[in-house]
């Protein structure tokens, strides 16, 4: 090797590379035809007028973009999506951390507790959302009944019926689904931290909080980053919870981008507008994904 006659061609188009491309071909074909092509098609839809079945009519340039960007609702939805994502992820991380700390204490029944904590994550999100819809029921739901009976809240709200309470109820379900994942990742990280570190902390006379801040947190910093990033993407994409609980209502008080895309398309049959919002969503997700991928690979290099 090394001779200039060994061209790039033979370096990269040898038997090994050919086999590699052949093995990847089925996956690539599927991804191209059912992921890349549909995304390209969505871009087209956003630039064309579409009929009620989503078929392309005539080229309209940026018309649909201008239409969407000129509505207040779109901007409100975008801001709400950001609030939704950040708020949910922060609460998930905090609650996840508390659960991880609790599970990191040794007592009998800890394994059972761990198993039980996982259930919301293990369960199917659409089905959980339907269960929550019943839990939140104003008159017959057991949440309000429990609040009333225990005297915690004698006059509980119509959870899904008013804008603010609907937003809180919906985001809580998303949080509830995402907490166990955070807890498990944090717990795995905590259990990988060497006990010696804590012992030398004890010798230096550090209290529990100091040890948490100076040993535990730095020890699982990477994991916190990864888990937060993954969770942000999932939260941003949580169509099922919102759609099943409120469909974005009442009004647009729980609408996030991803449900707006669906409703503009399949409920109001305004496919161009849906496509514009899908493109916006795509751009946001791509940026988040690239940050995530870079973070991921940087860590691989570090190790």
């Amino acid at each position: 090797m090394g001779a200039s006659t060994v061209s790039l061609r033979s370096r990269y188009w040898n038997k090994e590379a050919q086999l590699a491309y052949l093995l990847m071909l089925p996956a690539v074909v599927l991804l191209l035809s059912l992921m890349v092509y549909p995304i390209a098609y969505v871009f087209m839809m956003s630039l064309y007028r579409t009929d009620r079945l989503g078929r392309l009519q005539e080229f309209a340039g940026m018309a649909a973009y201008l239409e969407v960007f000129s509505t207040r609702v779109f901007w409100e939805t975008t801001v709400r999506t950001a609030v939704w994502t950040v708020l949910a992820v922060v609460v998930k991380a905090v609650l996840g951390m508390i659960i991880a700390l609790v599970l990191n204490v040794e007592y009998t029944g800890r394994r059972t507790a761990r198993m039980l904590f996982i259930i919301p994550w293990a369960s199917s999100v659409p089905i959980s959302a339907m269960l929550w819809k019943w839990v939140y029921d104003h008159e017959f739901g057991l949440l309000n009944q429990t609040l009333r009976a225990t005297g915690i809240w004698t006059n509980p709200p119509v959870w899904l019926g008013a804008p603010t309470s609907a937003f809180i109820s919906t985001i809580w379900v998303d949080i509830w689904v995402g907490v166990p994942f955070m807890a498990l990742i944090f717990l795995a990280g905590m259990q990988a931290i060497s006990r010696d570190l804590y012992e030398s902390g004890d010798i230096d006379g550090a209290n529990a909080t100091q040890k948490f801040v100076h040993i535990t947190i730095p020890g699982i910093r990477h994991l916190i980053l990864i888990a937060t990033m993954l969770s942000s993407l999932w939260t941003f994409n949580d169509f099922n919870t919102v759609f099943i609980l409120t469909k974005g209502g009442p009004g647009t008080s729980t609408e996030i981008l991803i449900t707006a895309v669906y409703k503009h398309g399949f409920e109001w049959l305004r496919f161009s507008r849906a496509a514009v919002m899908a493109v916006v969503t795509f751009v946001i997700l791509t940026m988040l994904s690239l940050i995530y991928a870079r973070m991921f690979f940087r860590q691989e290099r570090d190790l």
């Binding site: 992921m35 995304i39 669906y262 496509a275 791509t286 991928a293």
Partner: peptide, 26 residues
């Protein structure tokens, strides 16, 4: 090879909602 790995990580995050409006046509 590296590009493929990058891509795999990135598309893992795409929401089905983005493509569902055009996938329906297809």
């Amino acid at each position: 090879r590296k590009a493929v790995m990058y891509l795999l990580l990135a598309i893992q995050m795409f929401s089905p909602v983005i493509v569902v409006i055009s996938l329906f046509r297809i």
